[in-house]
Design a protein around this nucleic acid. Structure first.
Length: 138
DNA sequence: GCCAACGTTGGC
DNA sequence: GCCAACGTTGGC
């Protein structure tokens, strides 16, 4: 089981909208980066990821689960990129801010810290457990 | 196939 | 709103 982190600007697609999409979830489109694509392709149904608000908020705010594996992104005219479907699983009782992550030495290796521009990132199990705990989920 | 120019992202 | 970092594009 791998863990992931999905970045979204709340002005474009927010956690509240993800929650409103309910059990049916939504497609995670718009990825136009080959490394991010590689991560999308590696995702298995049932794997979970953090939902991160970039720019405005700058915090991990919730957890999503992959409900449909990689398939073509019809919004990509080049036909090169794809997407997965995700649904909201749980909100973090306390959002974990980028500042809090940067202040935590155990999380210094997170992709979010070292390659903040990557829109779909892998998260290690240790990072997953730690950020969940910081967010108030056991 | 190299690399300069350009566009985009996202933290500050 | 600025700008650094990075990815992509296109000329050669």
């Amino acid at each position: 089981m791998a863990y992931w982190l999905f970045k979204s600007e709340p002005a474009t697609w927010s956690w509240d909208q993800q929650v409103a999409a309910g059990e049916a979830g939504t497609y995670w489109n718009g990825v136009r980066n080959h490394l991010a694509k590689k991560h999308l392709m590696a995702m298995q149904v049932g794997e979970q990821g953090f939902f991160y608000h970039s720019n405005e908020g700058k915090a991990v705010v919730g957890i999503v689960a992959v409900i449909r594996p990689y398939y073509p992104d019809y919004t990509d005219e080049s036909g090169r990129f794809g997407m997965v479907d995700v649904k909201a699983v749980a909100a973090l009782p306390r959002p974990v801010t980028l500042d809090a992550i940067k202040a935590e030495p155990d999380l210094a290796g997170m992709v979010l810290v070292n390659n903040s521009r990557l829109s779909v990132q892998p998260v290690s199990e240790a990072e997953w457990v730690r950020v969940r705990a910081m967010g108030g989920l056991g």
